[in-house]
């Protein structure tokens, strides 16, 4: 906090001073509603973290919602493929704000062992703003719980004034990637792709030869 608030001597031990942001964040951090959504292998450890031994209910998150409209935390628990990523972006766009993303495991973070595959997106953070990354393949349920705790810290320390959810201007939706063409198309890259189409083929071959070198 920027400035220390002075409590008069006679009131010490009688009053409790906090900032609005802090108490608001404290309320929010224990009422996250994760989305009931598994992608791949990590989903099993995600479920194991929700089951008896690790029990996310102790963090106030046992109410996993199947609808994105009722969720404010999405755990990307597995390999994001090109076929799946438009749907994941759609789900994220449909979630209620303020919303958070946890990228669970190596695959969701950077493609993981399947990174070299032709149908795999190298990291969901190409499209979604990820708050917490959880390393591991797969992360243990404890690692996921530690990530939840880290996310709680982050929410607690968010200032209502600064955080983007509470600004006046609306938050733009993440553009949904386009599928159905020769490959996945990121709408933000369309001008560059159009530019590339006009280029002489010579340049493109130079690029590919550099790639294979």
């Amino acid at each position: 906090m920027t400035q220390e608030i002075q409590v008069p001597e006679e009131l010490k031990g009688q009053v409790f001073i906090t900032t609005l942001s802090q108490i608001y964040g404290w309320g929010r951090r224990y009422s996250l509603w994760p989305m009931f959504f598994g992608v791949a292998c990590c989903a099993f450890e995600f479920m194991a973290a929700s089951a008896a031994r690790f029990d996310v209910g102790r963090f106030g998150m046992d109410l996993a919602r199947a609808s994105p409209r009722q969720a404010d935390l999405i755990v990307i628990s597995g390999t994001v493929t090109k076929k799946m990523v438009p749907k994941i972006v759609m789900l994220y766009n449909q979630m209620a704000e303020p919303k958070y993303v946890i990228s669970m495991g190596a695959c969701a973070t950077g493609g993981g062992p399947f990174k070299e595959g032709y149908n795999v997106v190298s990291g969901v953070d190409q499209f979604l703003p990820v708050d917490i990354y959880v390393p591991g393949c797969p992360p243990t349920p404890e690692a996921l719980l530690a990530a939840y705790i880290a996310l709680h810290e982050k929410i607690q320390n968010e200032s209502i004034k600064k955080v983007r959810w509470y600004r006046r201007e609306p938050i733009p939706e993440v553009p949904v990637p386009l599928l159905g063409g020769p490959d996945l198309i990121d709408p933000r890259q369309i001008p560059a792709i159009r530019q590339a189409a006009l280029e002489r083929p010579v340049e493109a071959t130079a690029e590919t030869s550099e790639t294979s070198a």
């Binding site: 090109k82 063409g181 020769p182 560059a192 792709i193 159009r194 189409a197 690029e207």
Partner: peptide
């Protein structure tokens, strides 16, 4: 290493405007 800094490739001369999904 790759052109689009992502795991994608397009055929030579692929024009997103001409293309219909």
């Amino acid at each position: 290493r790759v052109r689009w800094r992502a795991n994608v490739q397009y055929p030579q001369g692929f024009d997103p405007d001409q293309w219909k999904p």
